[in-house]
Design a protein around this nucleic acid. Structure first.
Lengths: 340, 340
DNA sequence: CGCCATTTTGACACCGGTTACCTAAATTAT
DNA sequence: ATAATTTAGGTAACCGGTGTCAAAATGGCG
């Protein structure tokens, strides 16, 4: 009993004895309408359960109510946080969220995205890191006249199309915290080359050393790829050193936890023998034992802000905001270094 | 230089000197067209870069090209896998994926979903567990004439609206494997009450015991909620028993890993002192040390199948498939019990 | 009461496609 | 050669909304 097909604006108009246009005015809360007819029409709408057809609206308005999240990020927790944030920003509006993953290794990412934008014509897109760091794609959106916000550690000094976090300052703070605790030999496990966020985090690391008068020991720098395995490998090579570091800063939590596991395998106690600081504040970081001291990366906030920038041009506050704070979360993976 | 607004079907018709309808026929690959005009029109389409407007099509066809994933599941890895699977199923079609999370604790989930379906009118929806277990919502889809597929351990004996996995058999196999290894005192950490999947997994557990002639010891049953913390709690209470079990089956990986951590905190060696088997095969399960023996839950396959069922009525193979195999993955968290 | 300004409402074309129906040309049958 | 049938393509209405602009209704004021 799937009932007859849905009532349309014409049905409402006929029953309420007004024109379609008047019904349209009621739906769109136009101010130039008498209270009397508005009530009458609203009554009819409620009676017959009329709901405007979004496709028809989209056609007439020449714009739809879709925000797309374009990503090439394989991290599940990140993705889900971003989606949550965008949906929070969209809540209460007519907008819906569409997800569009792209293949980071494909040579024609740009073509793929162009095709998507041209076919689907989303009202706006949120570009997620690392795809957000691709200037060509941002230009593509510009050319196609598609609203966009780039999320990440992009540090473009323009509020309109960007939502960033101050990774550099936050890492500087975190590493300074290690130094304050008495650590001098501090290692870093870097993120993948060629992206902004690992660069920023590395920069913050150096900044902290410099302002404490320490100099960077290249022997304590390890490459990483943001994966658990790369953290294990880097951690292992660090703890096997003759004069191993007393603390490690890893550019993300997964690698930090990998390093933790590697250290433990080598018989080290954490944090007594080795302090560790991560970055991201994934749920996992509070689940491991000892719980991981890390930098909270405000993904959900960034995503919510990005969504608001796209759909709420009047929200001056959201539109002005483009640099959100990453803050240090002290847990239990850091203590002063043991005397040697 | 955002260029003038996009070419429409009228532009193509005018330039190719045919009617709109003929262009429409070309787009829709209608067979009743001469090869000559088809080529001419296709040439014009390519020349001016015409792309059909999806909103207009949606309006005229009275159906859009949107598949929505409706979920109330907080697990990030699960969600991302589902999205990946659905997108694989949708790949190459005109369909796009929309995500619609609902609040599992809200009393008016049904109203929320009804509202979404009525407003957005997606072509089809994939209901994810545990929402998929709610019969009221399935009925709602029926009433609203919205195609749907319920994913999960739903075990409705009807292929049309269901994609399930054989959790029960798989768990039975996994626990039988423990028994073969020589374990007799096997504990279970259950999933949340009131959902099908934990029930099925528990049933499989009992089945394995029975067919081996063992009887269920209620003292070795612990409640859980699929969270890491509940796994820690359950694990701890199990290892503190005077005659503790030699093996634990946890109804998901997160709890298995929680139990693993709890056991280690109590000074137990894994797997020497305690074997552990999980369920899901999350990436984490191969990252922990020792790597977790677990049951692979074919989420991606299930999601892909669900998507195909929605959009490819001709794909008889996909439409007939509704029970996908969960298979045991042997890693290194199980060994025969130590002599006591 | 009549006139003008203002508010409220409606007629109609249009957004960019599709369907139903129709016509003219081409082909086949008689 | 003519009628019957098929094939190729066109016409007009329609899907369900919105924008424009003008008409109708209302109200204030002399």
């Amino acid at each position: 009993m799937a009932s007859d097909s849905k009532p349309t604006i014409n049905d409402v108009a006929r029953i309420a004895e007004v024109s379609k246009k008047t019904v349209s005015r009621v739906i769109n809360k136009s101010p130039l309408l008498s209270e009397k007819t508005r009530e009458r029409v609203e009554q009819v709408i409620a009676d017959i359960g009329y709901v405007p057809n979004p496709q028809a609206r989209a056609l007439a308005l020449r714009r739809n109510f879709v925000i797309a999240a374009i990503h090439d990020n394989p991290n599940a927790q990140f993705l889900v946080n971003v989606q949550q944030g965008i949906l929070e920003g969209l809540a209460g509006s007519d907008f819906n969220l569409m997800v569009k993953p792209v293949d980071r290794n494909s040579p024609n990412i740009t073509d793929d995205i162009r095709d998507f934008l041209v076919r689907q014509r989303p009202y706006g897109v949120v570009l997620l890191p690392p795809v957000s760091e691709n200037d060509e794609i941002a230009r593509l959106c510009d050319d196609l006249g598609c609203r966009y916000v780039r999320m990440g550690s992009v540090r473009l000094d323009e509020a309109e199309h960007t939502v960033s976090s101050n990774d550099r300052e936050a890492v500087c703070e975190a590493v300074s915290y290690l130094i304050e605790k008495g650590h001098q030999r501090i290692a870093i496990i870097e993120g993948p080359k060629g992206f902004t966020s690992p660069q920023e985090r590395r920069a913050g690391f150096e900044e902290a050393l410099h302002s404490a008068g320490l100099k960077l020991d290249e022997a304590l720098v390890r490459p990483g790829s943001y994966t658990f395995e790369s953290g294990v490998a880097a951690g292992q090579s660090l703890v096997e050193m003759a004069d191993r570091p007393t603390a490690i800063f890893a550019c993300n939590d997964e690698m930090a936890i990998g390093a933790m596991i590697a250290a433990r395998r080598s018989g080290l106690l954490i944090p007594e023998d080795l302090s560790i600081v991560g970055f991201d504040d994934t749920p996992l970081s509070s689940h491991v034992w000892p719980s991981l001291t890390t930098v909270h990366w405000p993904i959900v906030d960034m995503a919510r802000t990005a969504a608001l920038k796209l759909i709420a041009p009047d929200d001056v506050e959201a539109n002005a905001r483009w640099l959100l704070p990453s803050v240090l979360i002290e847990r239990s993976s850091v203590v002063p270094p043991a005397a040697r």
